[in-house]
Nucleic acid binder design. Structure first.
Lengths: 336, 336
DNA sequence: AGCAGCCAGGAAATCGATTCTTCTGCCTAC
DNA sequence: GTAGGCAGAAGAATCGATTTCCTGGCTGCT
């Protein structure tokens, strides 16, 4: 590990010069030949400032904690793909922290948050665990950005336009002549679930179709709950001819439920999901979905968090470009 | 940020006592009442040692870098699910580093590796990028563990028994009466690809079936390459009745290729994939696969890396419990 | 000549935890 | 009565980078 002292000795200057040069101190007056000697020494010794020492001095570690509930969920993977390069651009590294650990384990929480292992936290507010983390983080004044969720003003949050996207998906079904359009909602106390349901209602109302509780079911966020949700819905008196599912994974489960109920998709039942991931393309039938700017959301979340770390005020951002788009595959069709 | 000095003042002792007590210094002699005063102060101030200061002093940061090519790949997500809790157990946090950045960007590499931002690196050796990273890391003596790949002795690696698993998968096809069994290999210069092909050959040879180049194709690791691979294979003179695909994602692509070629799976063609992820369950038809202990591999990799960080010698580990298992779904059946 | 002012760079304090060395009473044993 | 020993704890150096405050020497002006 070459230290700044070695570089300084190598170049025949004092450490402060090396530091100020490398950090671009505007008040630094330095001769060209000295500058070049220092830079040459840096190159030759392959010097990089020690992470820990710099963090200690600056009281900023250069890492951002990322707490998502489940890496298997392709939605989070996509957000991550957007967030990581953005973090790098801003000079930060992402640190993976387990949401549940943060919520339940005092030792982990202390180590990470109180011990200053991260400069800020990016949190997917999903489970009740996330709520607990938010409550615990608040008093420590650690910069915090809630991901994929609209939040109230004192907090920072970055979301996508779930409502518009849900409306788009539902309208697609309406345009195919459907009027009995069910919705399998995410569930839970979060804006995503509410907004997607609201978008569904928006589209129905705009088309003059009455919104009925009979066509509202629970879809959850994994295939199993989607399967159960559609199965239960199909057992009711009033059978839908189309269903808008609030999650891709649940939509995949719904596809299986339809098959097991003896229905052909899309001839007997149209299914549209939420969020495009390459999974949607490879199920049978390929799933129509509405695509939202998830990577962009990841990128924005990093930007907002870095702003917060730099002392700027909290922001609530809705990422709306590119706009939600329909990806029409084979799971949606005309009304039977 | 409460510091150790504040805790010391609060308890009426010197900082060294606090440090030695909290770190369990065995040479520390301390009165019970003093100990309790210190612990009470720690609790009251909710003190945790500053990450950066401790890292600086100990020259160990407590983080492990993880470089995988693609989070969308459920295989990596699964390995990660195993690695993260193991890291926490050992007192480390996982840091996400981009493989390509590490390979190509000097600044990032310096910052992370030379700057001592990680104590060790867990690397999925996949692309040529990974090879470059290995070469660059070597001179810096950063502890390095290659994931999911057999390696030669001076390096450390953790792998699963690809060959046995491939043999198992192929034998499953043989037991269903198939003799024209193709293999879509991963490709690339890595042991995974070679071992899976070797396992396929093992099973054929054991059954007295000649191994033919005509039945060997390229599958890659994503659906698109799997699609192309099978399409090309089906265009040859000799048509297989079954195919063992070296990756789940490629197998999913192969399913689509079979459908587009007018073949019904499994009636006209049996398909078996490698690695079980919940994706396999939800494609049509549900894909038979062979399941390997991926989470366990992630956990083991952390153990080996931590050993390395603590100065123990390199190890090459093959994770073989639980043993590879067949997960039989509906994509494999009797020979037509 | 004398002095202000600038140029180029140096010295030292600091961040917080760890760890090695040193110190102070008090008790015991000879 | 005093040296020695030990329990119990304080002090100080250190890790490496940053940053504030200085300094020596030269220039230019009066």
């Amino acid at each position: 590990m070459t230290s700044i002292t070695e570089v300084a000795r190598h170049a025949g200057v004092s450490p402060s010069i090396v530091s100020r040069l490398l950090n671009g101190d505007p008040t630094l007056r330095i001769r060209t030949d000295t500058r070049e000697r220092v830079l040459a020494a840096v190159e030759e010794l392959d010097y990089a400032p020690n992470h820990a020492a710099r963090a200690l001095r600056r009281s900023r570690v250069g890492t951002i904690g990322l707490a998502v509930p489940d890496m298997h969920n392709p939605v989070y993977a996509t957000i991550l793909e957007g967030a990581r390069p953005a973090a790098t651009e801003h000079g930060f590294v992402l640190m993976l922290t387990d949401l549940d650990d943060l919520a339940s384990d005092t030792t982990t929480f202390r180590r990470i948050v109180r011990g200053g292992a991260i400069d800020g936290l990016l949190l997917q507010r999903n489970s009740t665990a996330a709520g607990r983390v938010v409550d615990r983080v608040a008093p420590s004044r650690l910069p915090l950005v809630i991901l994929n969720e609209r939040v109230r003003s004192p907090a920072s949050g970055v979301a996508v336009d779930d409502r518009a996207a849900a409306r788009l998906a539902t309208r697609h079904l309406i345009e195919h002549g459907h009027t009995d359009i069910a919705h399998l909602r995410l569930g839970g106390r979060n804006s995503r679930s509410r907004d997607r349901q609201a978008g569904w209602e928006d589209a129905l109302r705009e088309a003059g179709i009455p919104v009925s509780r009979d066509l509202l079911g629970h879809g959850g966020v994994v295939p199993e709950t989607g399967y159960r949700g559609l199965t239960e819905l199909l057992a009711r008196d009033r059978r839908p001819t189309a269903v808008f599912v609030g999650s891709v994974l649940a939509a995949v489960g719904a596809l299986a439920a339809a098959r097991d109920a003896g229905l052909t998709v899309p001839d007997d039942l149209s299914v549209i999901g939420f969020h495009d991931t390459w999974l949607a393309e490879h199920v049978d039938p390929p799933l129509s979905v509405v695509r939202l700017p998830l990577e962009e959301m990841g990128r924005e979340a990093i930007r907002v968090l870095v702003d917060l770390i730099e002392g700027k005020p909290p922001q609530q951002v809705m990422v709306s470009t590119p706009e939600p788009t329909l990806i029409i595959r084979s799971s949606t069709g005309k009304v039977p």
